[in-house]
Write a protein that binds this DNA or RNA. Structure first.
Length: 470
RNA sequence: GGCGGCGUACCCAAGCGGUCUAAGGGGACGGUCUGCAAAAUCGUUAUUCACCGGUUCGAAUCCGGUCGCCGCCUCCA
């Protein structure tokens, strides 16, 4: 397996520190609002990578932080006259709703910043002891000049950054690039006791403290959006490696942006759709397929047209999944031979995705498979093993790894306790009679009227089936 | 100004020196199946990879230049 490592700017063979264990950390949300579809890309891609590692037999521990204390949260909460802690709490709940909506598997842990203040204080103390941090009247800063590798991830040089001079000048800092580890308490802000007086942690320190606490001093994979490379991840490296004298992360993985009309989608530009509003109109499978069809590191230009085509594509897979499932339930099998080589398809899928999580290529293998399976099933009475193998392949790849199909079909009819299904079957029966009497006008009327309310009838040699358009 | 990325058919997109007269998805058009549809299937839709040079027996893939687009350098997935 190969992974492109931002740190070395090369594709490298993936060798975890302690195989088969993989410790993976993905930067999570700052919970001050609903997340948008661009954020969703990172959460979904992190999820897919994790699922693929599981598929490949790794024992993955997957951790995502929740930033629940931060300038933006405090600002918003204060504007609304709410308690910042409660405000964050609310958006944590909303975060989980949207994550579930995207069919992202829950992480093994979601550490929260406010629950790890003491770990952060310990880490800052260590940095102070090592003389890479300095306290100015209750504000504690990291001294970037003391870390010789500063800039190794982003390829930036301290001198050039300084001359760039886009950084706000803070009188208390020795160097404009120094960043806050601990912020002195201000009126109307949450605060915690510390050796430097009351205050709250800086942003970067939480990821260092919590990831090391959950996963140990050296992580196998650390992922996040490309905009985090500098300064966030650069600073994480500085903090963690200065404290432990060990490599913080073996493989840095960064996701490309989701653009809209060729511009980065971001809250500050205001050009975003929330994941929630997208999920109202499109199933998670369509969103996930859209993401899976572009390499994770490349930019992806978002549009509803693309989602439409992704949705259509997922329907090809789910219709095969449905056919196979129904066939297995019917217990009606033949014994004709088939040529489809299931093992070969699975090998192709694995080889494709092993190469730096090339999901687009993996998706192509799945569609090749769909075509091949449909071709075999045409006018053939196939044995049970065919359907079992087809189901197995789709479950392992399209469902468990990519999440672009879901074999749980029975959800549509819960509210009516199956009565809707019976009703439709009665109509199909009546239409069948009309057809037998060559009363095509009536048969077509039944079909058209059902179609108008989103129930699509499909005739085939073995009878009529229906599907409900979402 | 510094650093990085990108430009492949109507749209999206894989491709990392030969198997590329270039995967896969969507769209369009035509055939099969069907009473008609739908679904499925078959076929067509880039001898060419922004442009110009170069390296090589051989380049979409490497190098140089030109044009265009984007990102990071400030909170941001």
């Amino acid at each position: 397996m190969k992974i492109y490592n931002t740190l070395t700017k090369k594709k490298e063979e993936f060798v975890p520190v302690n195989p088969p264990k993989v410790r993976m950390y993905v930067c999570g949300p700052t919970v001050y609002d609903y997340f948008h579809i661009g954020n969703a890309r990172s959460f979904v891609m992190g999820d897919m990578i994790r699922r693929y590692l599981l598929y490949r037999g790794y024992d993955v521990k997957y951790v995502m932080n929740l930033t629940d204390v931060d300038d933006k949260i405090i600002k918003r909460a204060n504007e609304l006259g709410e308690d910042p802690k409660k405000y964050a709490e609310k958006y944590i709940a909303e975060f989980f709703k949207d994550i579930d909506g995207l069919k992202v598997k829950r992480a093994d842990a979601y550490p929260r910043a406010t629950e790890h203040i003491s770990d952060m204080i310990e880490l800052i103390k260590k940095l102070e002891e090592k003389d890479v941090a300095y306290n100015v009247d209750g504000d504690v800063f990291y001294d970037v000049r003391k870390f010789k590798d500063y800039g190794k991830l982003s390829g930036k040089k301290i001198d050039e950054l300084e001359s760039g001079a886009r950084i706000e000048i803070n009188e208390n800092k020795k160097n404009p690039l120094d960043f806050a580890l601990w912020k002195k308490a201000k009126e109307g802000e949450p605060e915690w006791e510390s050796p430097w007086g009351k205050g709250r942690p800086g942003w970067h320190i939480e990821c260092s403290a919590m990831s090391m606490k959950e996963l140990g001093e050296t992580l196998d994979i650390h992922a996040g959006g490309s905009d985090l490379i500098f300064p966030h991840h650069e600073n994480e490296i500085a903090q963690s490696e200065a404290a432990t004298c060990k490599d913080f992360v073996k493989y840095w993985v960064h996701f490309g942006f989701l653009n809209i009309r060729d511009e980065k989608m971001s809250k500050s530009l205001g050009n975003f759709y929330t994941a929630r509003e997208v999920l109202k109109k499109y199933p998670a499978e369509a969103v996930r397929l859209l993401f899976a069809q572009t390499h994770y590191a490349a930019p992806l230009n978002f549009s509803f047209e693309l989602l439409d085509s992704a949705k259509k594509a997922t329907e090809r897979i789910s219709s095969l999944a449905k056919t196979v499932t129904e066939k297995l339930a019917s217990k009606n099998f033949g014994d004709e031979e088939y040529e489809l080589n299931f093992e070969e398809f699975e090998n192709k899928f694995r080889i494709a995705v092993d190469d730096d999580f090339n999901f687009p290529k993996g998706v192509a293998v799945i569609f090749d498979f769909v075509k091949a399976a449909n071709r075999e099933m045409q006018n053939k009475n196939l044995p049970k093993s065919f359907y079992e193998n087809a189901k197995g392949f789709l479950e392992r790849t399209a469902q468990d790894v990519l999440g672009i199909v879901d074999f749980n079909f029975q959800d549509e009819d819960k509210s009516t306790g199956g009565k809707q299904d019976e009703l439709i079957k009665i109509l199909i029966e009546l239409r069948q009679k009309a057809k037998a009497e060559k009363n095509y006008a009536l048969a077509d009327e039944i079909r058209d009227k059902l179609s108008a309310i989103g129930i699509i009838l499909q005739d085939s040699k073995t009878g009529t089936t229906y599907k409900i358009k979402s």
